[in-house]
Nucleic acid binder design. Structure first.
Lengths: 213, 213
DNA sequence: CGCTAATCTAGAACAAGTTTCAGACTTGAT
DNA sequence: ATCAAGTCTGAAACTTGTTCTAGATTAGCG
Protein backbone atom coordinates (compact mmCIF):
# COMPACT_ATOMS: atom_id res chain seq x y z
CA UNK A 1 0.00 0.00 0.00
CA UNK A 2 1.27 3.42 -0.77
CA UNK A 3 1.80 5.76 2.09
CA UNK A 4 -1.77 6.87 1.62
CA UNK A 5 -2.12 10.06 3.52
CA UNK A 6 -2.81 9.74 7.13
CA UNK A 7 -5.48 12.31 7.09
CA UNK A 8 -4.88 14.98 9.60
CA UNK A 9 -7.98 16.54 10.99
CA UNK A 10 -8.67 20.06 10.16
CA UNK A 11 -10.49 21.80 12.93
CA UNK A 12 -11.12 25.49 12.97
CA UNK A 13 -14.45 26.30 11.50
CA UNK A 14 -15.80 29.03 13.73
CA UNK A 15 -19.20 29.27 12.11
CA UNK A 16 -20.49 25.70 12.32
CA UNK A 17 -21.19 24.29 15.75
CA UNK A 18 -18.85 21.55 16.81
CA UNK A 19 -19.64 18.78 14.37
CA UNK A 20 -17.18 15.91 14.24
CA UNK A 21 -14.09 17.34 12.60
CA UNK A 22 -13.59 16.37 8.99
CA UNK A 23 -10.47 14.90 7.49
CA UNK A 24 -8.92 16.60 4.51
CA UNK A 25 -10.46 14.19 2.06
CA UNK A 26 -13.81 14.73 3.66
CA UNK A 27 -13.41 18.46 3.49
CA UNK A 28 -12.52 18.07 -0.16
CA UNK A 29 -15.59 15.92 -0.80
CA UNK A 30 -17.79 18.43 0.90
CA UNK A 31 -16.31 21.16 -1.22
CA UNK A 32 -16.74 19.18 -4.45
CA UNK A 33 -20.35 18.58 -3.57
CA UNK A 34 -21.07 22.23 -2.89
CA UNK A 35 -19.30 23.18 -6.09
CA UNK A 36 -21.31 20.71 -8.15
CA UNK A 37 -24.48 21.92 -6.50
CA UNK A 38 -23.79 25.54 -7.33
CA UNK A 39 -22.79 24.66 -10.86
CA UNK A 40 -25.91 22.65 -11.58
CA UNK A 41 -28.04 25.30 -9.94
CA UNK A 42 -26.47 27.98 -12.10
CA UNK A 43 -27.49 26.04 -15.18
CA UNK A 44 -31.09 25.29 -14.50
CA UNK A 45 -32.15 26.40 -11.05
CA UNK A 46 -33.82 24.31 -8.38
CA UNK A 47 -35.00 21.53 -10.66
CA UNK A 48 -31.62 21.09 -12.28
CA UNK A 49 -30.01 20.22 -8.99
CA UNK A 50 -30.71 16.51 -9.05
CA UNK A 51 -29.19 14.50 -6.29
CA UNK A 52 -27.94 11.75 -8.61
CA UNK A 53 -26.27 14.32 -10.81
CA UNK A 54 -24.73 16.14 -7.89
CA UNK A 55 -23.34 12.82 -6.69
CA UNK A 56 -21.91 11.99 -10.07
CA UNK A 57 -20.49 15.44 -10.70
CA UNK A 58 -18.76 15.46 -7.37
CA UNK A 59 -17.49 11.88 -7.66
CA UNK A 60 -19.26 10.66 -4.64
CA UNK A 61 -21.77 7.90 -4.07
CA UNK A 62 -25.37 8.87 -3.63
CA UNK A 63 -25.37 7.51 -0.09
CA UNK A 64 -22.36 9.63 0.73
CA UNK A 65 -24.01 12.73 -0.61
CA UNK A 66 -26.91 12.05 1.73
CA UNK A 67 -24.52 11.54 4.62
CA UNK A 68 -23.10 14.98 4.05
CA UNK A 69 -26.40 16.70 3.30
CA UNK A 70 -29.47 14.88 4.53
CA UNK A 71 -31.74 16.32 1.86
CA UNK A 72 -31.74 18.39 -1.28
CA UNK A 73 -32.96 21.32 0.76
CA UNK A 74 -30.11 20.94 3.22
CA UNK A 75 -27.70 20.88 0.32
CA UNK A 76 -29.07 24.02 -1.26
CA UNK A 77 -29.24 25.90 2.00
CA UNK A 78 -25.62 24.95 2.63
CA UNK A 79 -24.83 26.20 -0.87
CA UNK A 80 -26.46 29.45 0.09
CA UNK A 81 -24.42 29.71 3.28
CA UNK A 82 -21.35 29.26 1.18
CA UNK A 83 -22.31 31.92 -1.34
CA UNK A 84 -23.42 34.31 1.38
CA UNK A 85 -20.11 34.05 3.13
CA UNK A 86 -18.40 34.89 -0.10
CA UNK A 87 -20.71 37.82 -0.69
CA UNK A 88 -20.27 39.16 2.81
CA UNK A 89 -16.55 39.23 2.20
CA UNK A 90 -17.02 41.06 -1.08
CA UNK A 91 -19.37 43.59 0.43
CA UNK A 92 -17.07 44.30 3.32
CA UNK A 93 -14.37 45.46 0.95
CA UNK A 94 -16.46 48.31 -0.38
CA UNK A 95 -18.71 49.62 2.34
CA UNK A 96 -21.75 51.55 1.19
CA UNK A 97 -21.39 55.31 1.03
CA UNK A 98 -24.89 56.68 1.64
CA UNK A 99 -25.51 59.39 4.20
CA UNK A 100 -28.36 57.76 6.03
CA UNK A 101 -28.56 54.23 7.34
CA UNK A 102 -31.51 53.62 5.05
CA UNK A 103 -29.48 54.58 2.02
CA UNK A 104 -26.57 52.41 3.04
CA UNK A 105 -28.74 49.37 3.66
CA UNK A 106 -30.59 49.83 0.40
CA UNK A 107 -27.32 50.28 -1.42
CA UNK A 108 -25.93 47.10 0.07
CA UNK A 109 -29.00 45.06 -0.71
CA UNK A 110 -29.15 46.35 -4.24
CA UNK A 111 -25.53 45.39 -4.69
CA UNK A 112 -26.37 41.90 -3.50
CA UNK A 113 -29.37 41.89 -5.77
CA UNK A 114 -27.25 42.73 -8.78
CA UNK A 115 -24.95 39.85 -7.91
CA UNK A 116 -27.95 37.53 -7.84
CA UNK A 117 -29.12 38.83 -11.17
CA UNK A 118 -25.91 37.59 -12.70
CA UNK A 119 -26.84 34.05 -11.69
CA UNK A 120 -30.60 34.04 -11.61
CA UNK A 121 -30.86 30.26 -11.74
CA UNK A 122 -28.57 29.87 -8.79
CA UNK A 123 -30.55 32.49 -6.94
CA UNK A 124 -33.72 30.61 -7.75
CA UNK A 125 -32.40 27.36 -6.36
CA UNK A 126 -31.09 28.89 -3.18
CA UNK A 127 -34.02 31.11 -2.35
CA UNK A 128 -36.62 28.49 -3.14
CA UNK A 129 -34.81 26.04 -0.90
CA UNK A 130 -34.57 28.60 1.84
CA UNK A 131 -38.26 29.40 1.95
CA UNK A 132 -39.34 25.83 1.40
CA UNK A 133 -37.22 24.48 4.21
CA UNK A 134 -39.14 22.86 7.01
CA UNK A 135 -38.26 22.49 10.68
CA UNK A 136 -35.58 19.90 10.04
CA UNK A 137 -33.46 22.57 8.38
CA UNK A 138 -34.08 25.29 10.95
CA UNK A 139 -30.54 25.49 12.31
CA UNK A 140 -29.08 25.96 8.84
CA UNK A 141 -31.71 28.45 7.76
CA UNK A 142 -31.18 30.33 10.97
CA UNK A 143 -27.49 30.53 10.24
CA UNK A 144 -28.27 32.06 6.84
CA UNK A 145 -30.57 34.50 8.55
CA UNK A 146 -27.91 35.51 11.05
CA UNK A 147 -25.43 36.03 8.28
CA UNK A 148 -27.90 38.23 6.43
CA UNK A 149 -28.60 40.17 9.58
CA UNK A 150 -24.91 40.81 10.01
CA UNK A 151 -24.61 42.11 6.48
CA UNK A 152 -27.44 44.53 7.08
CA UNK A 153 -26.12 45.62 10.46
CA UNK A 154 -22.75 46.25 8.87
CA UNK A 155 -24.48 48.61 6.48
CA UNK A 156 -26.37 50.30 9.27
CA UNK A 157 -23.07 50.79 10.99
CA UNK A 158 -24.06 50.34 14.61
CA UNK A 159 -22.28 48.43 17.29
CA UNK A 160 -25.17 48.04 19.67
CA UNK A 161 -28.48 48.11 17.86
CA UNK A 162 -31.57 48.68 19.94
CA UNK A 163 -34.38 46.12 19.95
CA UNK A 164 -36.32 48.52 17.77
CA UNK A 165 -33.57 48.58 15.25
CA UNK A 166 -33.34 44.84 15.28
CA UNK A 167 -37.03 44.68 14.53
CA UNK A 168 -36.54 46.96 11.60
CA UNK A 169 -33.72 44.76 10.37
CA UNK A 170 -35.90 41.70 10.68
CA UNK A 171 -38.60 43.34 8.61
CA UNK A 172 -36.04 44.37 6.02
CA UNK A 173 -34.92 40.78 5.81
CA UNK A 174 -38.48 39.59 5.38
CA UNK A 175 -38.99 42.04 2.59
CA UNK A 176 -35.71 41.09 0.98
CA UNK A 177 -36.58 37.40 0.85
CA UNK A 178 -40.12 37.86 -0.27
CA UNK A 179 -39.24 40.46 -2.88
CA UNK A 180 -36.62 38.12 -4.27
CA UNK A 181 -39.23 35.43 -4.61
CA UNK A 182 -41.66 37.61 -6.47
CA UNK A 183 -38.85 38.63 -8.80
CA UNK A 184 -37.68 35.05 -9.33
CA UNK A 185 -41.16 33.88 -10.13
CA UNK A 186 -41.60 36.66 -12.64
CA UNK A 187 -44.28 38.54 -10.74
CA UNK A 188 -42.23 41.64 -10.04
CA UNK A 189 -39.73 43.57 -12.09
CA UNK A 190 -36.26 44.53 -11.00
CA UNK A 191 -37.48 48.09 -10.64
CA UNK A 192 -40.28 46.94 -8.39
CA UNK A 193 -37.86 45.09 -6.14
CA UNK A 194 -35.75 48.22 -5.92
CA UNK A 195 -38.72 50.27 -4.84
CA UNK A 196 -39.76 47.74 -2.25
CA UNK A 197 -36.28 47.63 -0.78
CA UNK A 198 -36.02 51.38 -0.65
CA UNK A 199 -39.44 51.61 0.90
CA UNK A 200 -38.73 49.17 3.69
CA UNK A 201 -35.34 50.67 4.38
CA UNK A 202 -37.01 53.85 5.53
CA UNK A 203 -37.91 51.92 8.64
CA UNK A 204 -34.33 51.85 9.77
CA UNK A 205 -34.12 55.62 9.79
CA UNK A 206 -37.20 55.85 11.96
CA UNK A 207 -35.21 54.25 14.71
CA UNK A 208 -31.97 56.11 14.20
CA UNK A 209 -31.71 58.97 16.68
CA UNK A 210 -29.01 60.65 14.62
CA UNK A 211 -30.91 61.17 11.41
CA UNK A 212 -34.48 62.06 12.26
CA UNK A 213 -36.85 62.60 9.35
CA UNK B 1 -63.06 44.47 -41.37
CA UNK B 2 -66.43 43.82 -39.91
CA UNK B 3 -66.92 45.65 -36.68
CA UNK B 4 -68.70 42.76 -35.09
CA UNK B 5 -66.11 41.09 -32.92
CA UNK B 6 -66.81 37.57 -31.81
CA UNK B 7 -67.48 38.39 -28.20
CA UNK B 8 -70.63 36.43 -27.99
CA UNK B 9 -70.33 34.91 -24.57
CA UNK B 10 -67.75 36.57 -22.46
CA UNK B 11 -67.62 34.90 -19.10
CA UNK B 12 -68.04 37.75 -16.72
CA UNK B 13 -66.52 36.18 -13.67
CA UNK B 14 -64.54 38.95 -12.09
CA UNK B 15 -62.23 36.70 -10.10
CA UNK B 16 -61.34 33.87 -12.45
CA UNK B 17 -60.26 34.59 -16.00
CA UNK B 18 -62.58 33.25 -18.67
CA UNK B 19 -62.25 29.53 -18.39
CA UNK B 20 -64.82 27.28 -20.03
CA UNK B 21 -67.88 27.28 -17.78
CA UNK B 22 -68.23 24.17 -15.68
CA UNK B 23 -71.23 21.93 -15.47
CA UNK B 24 -72.77 21.31 -12.10
CA UNK B 25 -71.08 17.97 -11.69
CA UNK B 26 -67.78 19.54 -12.57
CA UNK B 27 -68.31 22.31 -10.10
CA UNK B 28 -69.13 19.68 -7.51
CA UNK B 29 -65.97 17.72 -8.32
CA UNK B 30 -63.87 20.82 -8.06
CA UNK B 31 -65.38 21.56 -4.69
CA UNK B 32 -64.84 18.02 -3.43
CA UNK B 33 -61.22 18.22 -4.47
CA UNK B 34 -60.64 21.51 -2.70
CA UNK B 35 -62.36 20.19 0.37
CA UNK B 36 -60.25 17.05 0.44
CA UNK B 37 -57.15 19.12 -0.07
CA UNK B 38 -57.94 21.41 2.84
CA UNK B 39 -58.84 18.47 5.03
CA UNK B 40 -55.66 16.55 4.35
CA UNK B 41 -53.63 19.70 4.74
CA UNK B 42 -55.24 20.38 8.10
CA UNK B 43 -54.12 16.98 9.30
CA UNK B 44 -50.51 16.95 8.29
CA UNK B 45 -49.53 20.01 6.33
CA UNK B 46 -47.86 20.12 2.96
CA UNK B 47 -46.56 16.57 2.98
CA UNK B 48 -49.89 15.09 3.95
CA UNK B 49 -51.53 16.44 0.83
CA UNK B 50 -50.72 13.52 -1.44
CA UNK B 51 -52.24 13.62 -4.85
CA UNK B 52 -53.40 9.99 -4.78
CA UNK B 53 -55.08 10.58 -1.46
CA UNK B 54 -56.71 13.77 -2.60
CA UNK B 55 -58.03 11.91 -5.62
CA UNK B 56 -59.37 9.08 -3.52
CA UNK B 57 -60.89 11.33 -0.86
CA UNK B 58 -62.66 13.37 -3.46
CA UNK B 59 -63.84 10.37 -5.47
CA UNK B 60 -62.09 11.35 -8.60
CA UNK B 61 -59.50 9.62 -10.76
CA UNK B 62 -55.93 10.80 -10.48
CA UNK B 63 -55.97 11.95 -14.09
CA UNK B 64 -59.05 14.02 -13.42
CA UNK B 65 -57.46 15.65 -10.42
CA UNK B 66 -54.59 16.69 -12.67
CA UNK B 67 -57.01 18.01 -15.24
CA UNK B 68 -58.52 20.30 -12.66
CA UNK B 69 -55.26 21.26 -10.97
CA UNK B 70 -52.15 20.74 -13.05
CA UNK B 71 -49.88 20.26 -10.05
CA UNK B 72 -49.89 19.90 -6.30
CA UNK B 73 -48.77 23.50 -6.05
CA UNK B 74 -51.66 24.66 -8.22
CA UNK B 75 -54.02 22.70 -6.03
CA UNK B 76 -52.71 24.19 -2.80
CA UNK B 77 -52.64 27.71 -4.16
CA UNK B 78 -56.24 27.26 -5.27
CA UNK B 79 -57.00 26.00 -1.78
CA UNK B 80 -55.49 29.18 -0.45
CA UNK B 81 -57.58 31.31 -2.79
CA UNK B 82 -60.60 29.54 -1.46
CA UNK B 83 -59.68 30.09 2.18
CA UNK B 84 -58.66 33.67 1.57
CA UNK B 85 -61.98 34.47 0.03
CA UNK B 86 -63.67 33.05 3.06
CA UNK B 87 -61.44 35.02 5.37
CA UNK B 88 -61.96 38.26 3.50
CA UNK B 89 -65.66 37.81 3.98
CA UNK B 90 -65.21 37.20 7.70
CA UNK B 91 -62.94 40.17 8.13
CA UNK B 92 -65.31 42.48 6.32
CA UNK B 93 -67.99 41.80 8.87
CA UNK B 94 -65.96 43.25 11.72
CA UNK B 95 -63.81 46.04 10.43
CA UNK B 96 -60.79 46.89 12.57
CA UNK B 97 -61.25 49.69 15.05
CA UNK B 98 -57.80 51.25 15.46
CA UNK B 99 -57.29 54.98 15.22
CA UNK B 100 -54.42 54.94 12.78
CA UNK B 101 -54.13 53.05 9.54
CA UNK B 102 -51.15 51.20 10.96
CA UNK B 103 -53.18 49.99 13.92
CA UNK B 104 -56.03 48.87 11.72
CA UNK B 105 -53.78 46.97 9.34
CA UNK B 106 -51.89 45.33 12.18
CA UNK B 107 -55.16 44.44 13.84
CA UNK B 108 -56.48 42.87 10.65
CA UNK B 109 -53.34 40.87 10.01
CA UNK B 110 -53.20 39.65 13.58
CA UNK B 111 -56.77 38.54 13.29
CA UNK B 112 -55.86 36.59 10.17
CA UNK B 113 -52.83 35.25 11.95
CA UNK B 114 -54.93 33.95 14.80
CA UNK B 115 -57.17 32.19 12.30
CA UNK B 116 -54.12 30.52 10.80
CA UNK B 117 -52.93 29.47 14.24
CA UNK B 118 -56.09 27.45 14.59
CA UNK B 119 -55.07 25.35 11.60
CA UNK B 120 -51.32 25.52 11.56
CA UNK B 121 -50.94 22.52 9.29
CA UNK B 122 -53.26 23.99 6.72
CA UNK B 123 -51.39 27.25 6.94
CA UNK B 124 -48.15 25.37 6.42
CA UNK B 125 -49.40 23.68 3.27
CA UNK B 126 -50.81 26.84 1.76
CA UNK B 127 -47.94 29.18 2.55
CA UNK B 128 -45.25 26.72 1.53
CA UNK B 129 -47.03 26.17 -1.77
CA UNK B 130 -47.36 29.87 -2.30
CA UNK B 131 -43.70 30.66 -1.85
CA UNK B 132 -42.52 27.58 -3.67
CA UNK B 133 -44.63 28.23 -6.71
CA UNK B 134 -42.71 28.79 -9.89
CA UNK B 135 -43.62 30.79 -12.99
CA UNK B 136 -46.24 28.30 -14.14
CA UNK B 137 -48.40 29.27 -11.18
CA UNK B 138 -47.88 33.02 -11.47
CA UNK B 139 -51.44 33.91 -12.42
CA UNK B 140 -52.86 32.07 -9.46
CA UNK B 141 -50.29 33.39 -7.03
CA UNK B 142 -50.92 36.85 -8.33
CA UNK B 143 -54.58 36.44 -7.65
CA UNK B 144 -53.82 35.52 -4.06
CA UNK B 145 -51.60 38.55 -3.83
CA UNK B 146 -54.32 40.83 -5.16
CA UNK B 147 -56.78 39.42 -2.69
CA UNK B 148 -54.35 40.04 0.15
CA UNK B 149 -53.73 43.56 -1.07
CA UNK B 150 -57.44 44.22 -1.02
CA UNK B 151 -57.73 42.99 2.53
CA UNK B 152 -54.98 45.33 3.62
CA UNK B 153 -56.37 48.25 1.68
CA UNK B 154 -59.72 47.63 3.28
CA UNK B 155 -58.04 48.02 6.64
CA UNK B 156 -56.24 51.15 5.55
CA UNK B 157 -59.56 52.52 4.48
CA UNK B 158 -58.58 54.49 1.42
CA UNK B 159 -60.34 54.65 -1.88
CA UNK B 160 -57.48 55.92 -3.96
CA UNK B 161 -54.16 54.92 -2.48
CA UNK B 162 -51.09 56.77 -3.69
CA UNK B 163 -48.21 54.88 -5.28
CA UNK B 164 -46.30 55.41 -2.06
CA UNK B 165 -49.05 53.79 -0.10
CA UNK B 166 -49.18 50.90 -2.50
CA UNK B 167 -45.47 50.40 -1.98
CA UNK B 168 -45.99 50.32 1.74
CA UNK B 169 -48.74 47.76 1.28
CA UNK B 170 -46.47 45.63 -0.87
CA UNK B 171 -43.81 45.67 1.80
CA UNK B 172 -46.38 44.77 4.42
CA UNK B 173 -47.38 41.83 2.31
CA UNK B 174 -43.79 40.73 1.93
CA UNK B 175 -43.32 40.88 5.65
CA UNK B 176 -46.55 39.06 6.27
CA UNK B 177 -45.59 36.13 4.06
CA UNK B 178 -42.05 35.88 5.25
CA UNK B 179 -42.97 36.24 8.90
CA UNK B 180 -45.51 33.47 8.48
CA UNK B 181 -42.82 31.24 7.08
CA UNK B 182 -40.43 31.84 9.92
CA UNK B 183 -43.23 31.08 12.34
CA UNK B 184 -44.31 27.94 10.50
CA UNK B 185 -40.79 26.60 10.41
CA UNK B 186 -40.41 27.21 14.12
CA UNK B 187 -37.80 29.92 13.85
CA UNK B 188 -39.93 32.72 15.25
CA UNK B 189 -42.47 32.87 18.02
CA UNK B 190 -45.97 34.19 17.73
CA UNK B 191 -44.85 37.21 19.70
CA UNK B 192 -42.04 37.81 17.27
CA UNK B 193 -44.44 37.73 14.34
CA UNK B 194 -46.63 40.23 16.12
CA UNK B 195 -43.74 42.59 16.62
CA UNK B 196 -42.67 42.29 13.00
CA UNK B 197 -46.15 43.03 11.77
CA UNK B 198 -46.51 46.00 14.02
CA UNK B 199 -43.12 47.27 13.00
CA UNK B 200 -43.79 47.11 9.30
CA UNK B 201 -47.22 48.62 9.67
CA UNK B 202 -45.64 51.85 10.80
CA UNK B 203 -44.73 52.33 7.18
CA UNK B 204 -48.33 52.89 6.24
CA UNK B 205 -48.66 55.82 8.61
CA UNK B 206 -45.61 57.46 7.09
CA UNK B 207 -47.62 57.91 3.95
CA UNK B 208 -50.91 58.89 5.52
CA UNK B 209 -51.35 62.65 5.51
CA UNK B 210 -54.19 62.52 8.01
CA UNK B 211 -52.44 60.87 10.91
CA UNK B 212 -48.95 62.25 11.18
CA UNK B 213 -46.85 60.91 14.01
C1' DC C 1 -82.85 9.12 -30.60
C1' DG C 2 -78.12 8.67 -32.25
C1' DC C 3 -73.62 10.61 -33.11
C1' DT C 4 -69.25 12.88 -31.95
C1' DA C 5 -66.19 15.19 -29.07
C1' DA C 6 -64.99 15.93 -24.62
C1' DT C 7 -64.47 14.13 -20.15
C1' DC C 8 -63.75 10.61 -16.68
C1' DT C 9 -61.83 6.24 -14.83
C1' DA C 10 -58.57 2.64 -13.52
C1' DG C 11 -54.28 1.54 -13.73
C1' DA C 12 -49.59 1.24 -15.51
C1' DA C 13 -45.47 3.70 -16.21
C1' DC C 14 -42.01 7.18 -15.42
C1' DA C 15 -39.02 10.65 -12.71
C1' DA C 16 -36.51 12.26 -8.96
C1' DG C 17 -35.90 12.41 -3.86
C1' DT C 18 -34.79 9.25 -0.29
C1' DT C 19 -33.56 4.83 2.02
C1' DT C 20 -31.28 0.58 2.45
C1' DC C 21 -27.71 -2.94 2.12
C1' DA C 22 -23.63 -5.73 1.41
C1' DG C 23 -19.10 -5.31 0.67
C1' DA C 24 -14.64 -2.52 0.16
C1' DC C 25 -11.83 1.04 2.08
C1' DT C 26 -9.99 4.40 5.93
C1' DT C 27 -9.02 5.73 10.28
C1' DG C 28 -7.39 5.66 14.99
C1' DA C 29 -5.64 3.01 18.53
C1' DT C 30 -3.10 -0.62 20.11
C1' DA D 1 1.34 -4.22 11.58
C1' DT D 2 -3.30 -5.31 13.05
C1' DC D 3 -7.91 -4.92 14.44
C1' DA D 4 -12.50 -2.66 15.39
C1' DA D 5 -15.25 1.10 14.19
C1' DG D 6 -16.53 4.22 11.13
C1' DT D 7 -16.96 5.70 6.17
C1' DC D 8 -17.59 5.18 1.21
C1' DT D 9 -19.35 2.77 -2.88
C1' DG D 10 -22.58 0.78 -6.21
C1' DA D 11 -26.85 -0.79 -6.85
C1' DA D 12 -31.44 -1.77 -5.90
C1' DA D 13 -35.72 -0.54 -3.72
C1' DC D 14 -39.21 2.54 -2.14
C1' DT D 15 -42.14 6.91 -2.24
C1' DT D 16 -44.76 10.33 -4.20
C1' DG D 17 -45.50 13.75 -7.96
C1' DT D 18 -46.57 13.49 -12.75
C1' DT D 19 -47.67 11.49 -17.33
C1' DC D 20 -49.79 8.24 -20.38
C1' DT D 21 -53.20 4.83 -22.27
C1' DA D 22 -57.31 2.36 -23.40
C1' DG D 23 -61.75 1.98 -22.62
C1' DA D 24 -66.28 3.74 -20.37
C1' DT D 25 -69.37 7.84 -19.60
C1' DT D 26 -71.33 12.15 -20.41
C1' DA D 27 -72.61 16.43 -22.77
C1' DG D 28 -74.18 18.85 -26.54
C1' DC D 29 -76.35 18.77 -30.96
C1' DG D 30 -78.77 17.70 -35.19
Amino acid sequence: MSAEAKEAKVEMNASQPASPPLTERQEARRRRILHASAQLASRGGFDAVQMREVAESSQVALGTLYRYFPSKIHLLVATMQDQLEHMHGTLRKKPPTGDTAAQRVAETLMRAFRALQREPHLADAMVRALTFADRSVSPEVDQVSRQTTMIILDAVGLENPTPEQLSAVRVIEHTWHSALITWLSGRASIAQVKIDIETVCRLIDLTDPRAPE
